[in-house]
Nucleic acid binder design. Structure first.
Lengths: 319, 319
DNA sequence: TTGTAAGCGTTATCAC
DNA sequence: GTGATAACGCTTACAA
């Protein structure tokens, strides 16, 4: 008992014994068992669960860093989980984490099937979604302004005079669907018809994106510009444009390394994935502080910005 | 008691009551408290701690993915921690994780100060280091063949006839120091003198790398080739070469997107960061299985391979 | 200032 | 096949 008090700096223990306890603990490498402490205090484990779909994607690893940073700042630990977009795995993870009595959950949901993420089913554990909105459950979420960013980027192409514009994107997770919706909405508003042959959204990687772009560029009446919903599609499109010698102009979501050195004009929508993680953690910590784990789901939408990379001139500047 | 048995599928409970228990549990969203189970079973928490220096760097996020994948496959959870290269933070994290009775620890150590990572001080919790070797402690580690990869890459430059070769790299963490050692050793073996003005290893990001490369290229007798110890330095070097119109050839560690489309010949050393994580997890799980947490530190060195990207011809191929 | 008793939620053991 | 009891390591409440 005295040891317990001494190690928690309880003032009721005398300085002399406190020192003796500390010395002995150091010598024995003794550490109080925090699991037992949690159990006794009826507290949870001081941990929050983070579930992402694909940690190999820098978007999610930066999001994870944001969560870890904000959580560490509040003295919380983060349990990291990767679902590889598998809902069943997501469900298993959620259930196990709940059994470990984590304080809260930050999830990039793998699909629209989200019943297992309802705090009501999780003994009231608060849940915050990142990058994708809740479907059928009432929880906080942090989103990117995918729609706004997309319309802004496409507007750049319109301003430059383009009227035949193609779309390249990955299969429709919410984010990509919103970007496509931005593309369609703006063009419809401007009374510009979309040639559905030039809308391709099945490309997950650079290779398939390049192939799709080449097919679009080979059409009888090819587009003069392409809007790409992510960097993998943008890079694939760039390869296709360079490979075919077309002088197609590009706009895309995601800034990427060397984007300014391409032999093609490019506008990119830039944003900060780490901020999504930080905001999600903040929402979660607010819930934990206020003890209002259920209901009244907030929706935070983070802004994007645009960068124009003009055509890079291969001519070297002089030393 | 019957509930406890039923939920663990203990055969001694009758099928009928088992079903009743399961039904009630489902209705109430009841989950056994795994913290209490751990405490009672004198087991640890089924968790391993992962400590990396910088999760924003894809190298470490892929390593983390490897750990998570391997751990999940063995039914273990991963607590993720980021030190931002701060040893004091690393020490705090290690101590807290130990108090939570984690099963083991995988660490990318922030520095050569590693006393706090000694299992002897951690109640025998096994430790595996990733990407950097142990200093003064006897633990397993998983390394990349930094030395071999570097000599191979530089050999490419020698074979192409280069004799004046510069070096660009980040400040000397172990990995970068090994790559520099490979560079120096090979050139010394070949009797080629190194001009120390052309050896720069303070560049952490693309901007400073570009500046350093420009300074080297502006020397009275500039190098005909540059070896870069990581992708940020390679990209900086590329920008400098393109910017100054030099026809310097590049070799580097780290494959990167668009590396094949540069207007400069480039050889890259490629490797799989995820594999480091998987191997580290495997070593740790072996320790846990065999219960031999201390001593006899293994050292696993993972191979690298080389890819040559020839000069990309700006001439388009025909559609 | 220090020690004793009880209990957090679980499970091993023994009784019924 | 089921229930009672004790114990895992800790902390609150109370007693010495």
């Amino acid at each position: 008992m005295t040891v317990s008090r001494a190690l928690r700096n309880d003032p009721s223990v005398s300085e002399k014994t406190r020192q003796r306890v500390l010395a002995a603990a150091a010598k024995l490498h003794y550490r109080p068992n925090l699991l037992a402490r949690s159990l006794r205090l009826q507290q949870t484990s001081g941990t929050i669960g983070l579930i992402v779909t694909n940690l190999a994607n820098p978007f999610y690893s930066q999001l994870a860093l944001g969560v870890e940073t904000a959580a560490a700042g509040a003295g919380m630990k983060v349990i990291l989980n990767n679902t590889a977009d598998d809902v069943d795995r997501e469900r298993d993870i959620v259930n196990e984490l709940a059994a470990w009595r984590i304080e809260g959950l930050i999830v990039v949901p793998a699909s629209r099937e989200q019943d297992h993420l309802d705090p009501a089913r999780l003994n009231g554990i608060p849940v915050v979604l990142g990058a994708r909105p809740p479907v059928g459950i009432d929880v906080d979420c942090v989103l990117l302004d995918d729609f706004g960013g997309a319309t802004e980027a496409v507007q750049r192409l319109l301003t430059a005079g383009h009227r035949r514009i193609g779309f390249l994107g990955p299969p429709a997770v919410w984010t990509s669907a919103e970007r496509l919706r931005g593309f369609r909405t703006l063009l419809a508003d401007q009374g510009i018809e979309i040639d559905e042959q030039m809308v391709r959204c099945e490309q997950r990687d650079v290779g398939t994106a390049e192939r799709a772009a080449r097919e679009i560029l080979a059409l009888a009446d090819p587009p003069t510009a392409l809007f790409c919903a992510n960097s993998r599609n943008a890079i694939g499109a760039y390869r296709a444009v360079r490979g075919t010698g077309a002088n197609t102009v590009l706009a895309s979501f995601d800034d990427f390394e060397l984007a300014d050195m391409l032999e093609v004009p490019l506008s990119v929508v830039r944003y900060d994935p780490e901020q999504i993680g930080r905001e999600a953690a903040r929402l979660l910590l607010d819930r934990l502080d206020s003890n209002s784990s259920v209901g009244n789901g907030q929706r935070v939408v983070l802004p994007t910005s645009i960068i124009d990379y003009p055509l890079h001139t291969p001519t070297p500047d002089m030393r």
